[in-house]
Nucleic acid binder design. Sequence first.
RNA 1: GCCGGGGUGGCGGAACUGGUAGACGCGCUCGGCUUAAAACCGAGUGUCCGACGCGGACGUGGGGGUUCGAGACCCUCCCCCGGCACCA
Length: 809
Amino acid sequence: MSSYEPHAIERKWQQVWEEAGAFVTPNPEDPASREARNSYVLEMLPYPSGELHMGHVLNYTLGDVVSHVRRRSGWSVLRPMGYDAFGLPAENAAIREGAHPREVTERNIAAIRGQIKRMGWSIDWTREVSTHEPEYYRWTQWIFLKLFEAGLAYRKAAPVKWCPNDQTVLANEQVIDGRCERCGAEVESRNLEQWMFKITDYADRLLDDMALLESWPERVLTMQRNWIGRSEGAEVTFRVEEVDEDVPVFTTRPDTLFGATFFVLAPEHPLVERFAERSPARDELRAYARHAAAKKTEERAAADEKTGVFTGFYAINPVNDAPIPIWVADYVLMDYGTGAIMAVPAHDERDFEFAEKFGLPIMQVVAPADGEAEAGLYVAHSDEEILVNSGPFTGLSSPEAKKAIVESLAGRGLGHAAVNYRLRDWLLSRQRYWGCPIPIIHCEACGIVPVPESELPVLLPEVDDYLPKGRSPLAAAEEWVNVSCPSCGGPALRETDTMDTFVDSSWYFLRYTDPRNDKAPFDRRLVDYWLPVNQYIGGIEHAILHLMYARFFTKALYDLDLLGFREPFARLFNQGMIYRFGAKMSKSKGNVVAPDELVDRYGADALRLYILFMGPADQDKEWQDTGVEGMWRFLSRLWRVVHDELDREPQEPGSTALARKAHETIHKVTDDIERRFVFNTPVAAVMELVNDISRDPADPASRFAVETAVALIQPYAPHIAEELWSALGHSRLWAAPWPVADESLLVRETVELVIQVNGRVRDRLQVAAGSPDEELVALARASERVQAHLSGPERRVVVVPDKLVNFVV
RNA sequence: GCCGGGGUGGCGGAACUGGUAGACGCGCUCGGCUUAAAACCGAGUGUCCGACGCGGACGUGGGGGUUCGAGACCCUCCCCCGGCACCA
């Protein structure tokens, strides 16, 4: 008898699938009819680093199991693959090697494509796209122009986060603890003209439309909510007579206005210099402001003690006309709210700390509903608080007072209700080579002029030097840069910045539906047919950036009437991280296990099986080096069991315990994958079935059980399953209907009855299913083991039919 | 500090709706096969006690509670992982 040799089998079936177009899903002839059951299963596209890692293996195997089961259950499944190919790593590698980034990228793509194919994932390769190809980025540029026309892309001089190592600007989202997300260098602040997307216009919809999502992990929604950081309150104007200025502040607590005993400006606030000009203490003021502004936010936050300087000026509190001293302090941030605050030390921890340190007055204006105002800090924690010392508003509850005070201010033009967000606009300019060119021309006469649609794509020019120098390497391509203005024909310059790669990946899921369209980024009927994505799968690291940008793009395109849905991904699943020796697998830690080596040794099927068998797909878990070998042993056992079956004389099929076990396994595997979305326990269930088969190979149901095991393991281990399926005399398992459990066989004739005394198990009996309660109690009472514990008066008997009898004595 | 996820044998984990804790796999032990080893096959494997073929006690991070019955529900505390954090 032959033994299990994965490599030849895997090569063979991969070729068969390719030749048969087994996983090619054509678009419907009439996308308007939604009769067909269709499902879009999407995993986040890989960055082509040339190296497939275990995270990919988990991600794509997960999607593969879902796709196979849906396909075999009669669904039309869209399952594409592509590459997020622009970006710094390829460019840095190119600089190191002296090669062109395109060369490095395409070499990496070829490598990773080869690895993906070796894994045998059921991908529709006719839809492959890569974001660095002009056929793709032409439409990235087209979308950019649509957003520009709609006023959603704009240019602005702004203090930006600058990475001195990568020599480029970063998005806020790419700065982690004051360091560059990619290289870890400390980020600096620079003032530059940059392109921005107006994602802040969509802040409320990004929050509210979460209600449209079918199933997203709670933690992702929470992270996005925190990131958007919506807070409701009021903008209130304070008058500074000496400089004839009205200074607005944002507050979430307008009800505490009577307790505002001082006023604080951020060190970067423009008024600080105005004050300094007129102040005898100008040197001290300027020194503090300069010193504080230079510090990073993180350093400021980490400071043990509050610092600050009195300006010598006063602001008028609009509710009671009281003049309050204006300070400059670095605990107030220029980039949130208005860069100025009213300080209410009695009811805000930070203001309290500051007031204590500098001896400023502290006045209670809010008290607990059932108590007296007490000196010191009192931070409200419910809506039950009552106002005190607040003039005409004294006695109102906090929520009433908020409304009343804002209304009264609004009546005098000194304030209004306001909402503030932590979310900033998306800075998309990058001063690097390997990215999508921004299709804009700067004309001396006309200003900013979009490149006409007919001239797209604006191709990346060839340059000799990609080294970052603080301006885009594209600026060196003079012939490319110097153009005539499309509007007036005069001399003009091309925009030399490229786009953040997150722009490329904010719409790729739309392109897959119509990847070769050269008239438009996609056909609206096709995106409306396939989207929203039914199941999106990827890592938690994209909880904020990619997922929020993709949601924003979808909404913007919806508003432009280019598609008919408001959320791109109905269901999201985040796979857990894989650890080894207690740490996340990473090159720097030296604890990486290469998928390729395992495939060489045990085959793709064993690896696919182990990566899902390891544990719950959404939880972090520890890699076991012996795990894949164990799966290889299981597959060898399955191989043997099938061939033993083939070697035996065919027998009359019979309905035995093994037949029931097979049906139970069908039920369990199907339910786990489809309803529970768990992937480890189905493998265990099939293993149990195989164990049962080998326990009695002569069982009349063995043929059925063997075929069931093969049919059920196919989504996990498609190559061996296909091979065994054809050995069993069938063909095309990839298209064979998913097994259906016979409900009647799931009903057991006898059940195990657990007998407890005082909740402790004392005996177990086989009894006929559906026996009446009295019979169960009588049988239970008859048990010797039970009687030994039935001393003392019986107080109660609990019966759970077909399950358990509990005597309480 | 706030938010989210976790804590079950030597290890990864199972137990879905409160009803047999430890499925399945890894590892380990013993036995078979073998000149031998590997592979493979069979048996065993939570801890402790005992007149070890029957049995008993303990046991899901700690403490308390609800219940006939809790790994699961409630209260409280501890620990680990991830995110956010001077955001007014």
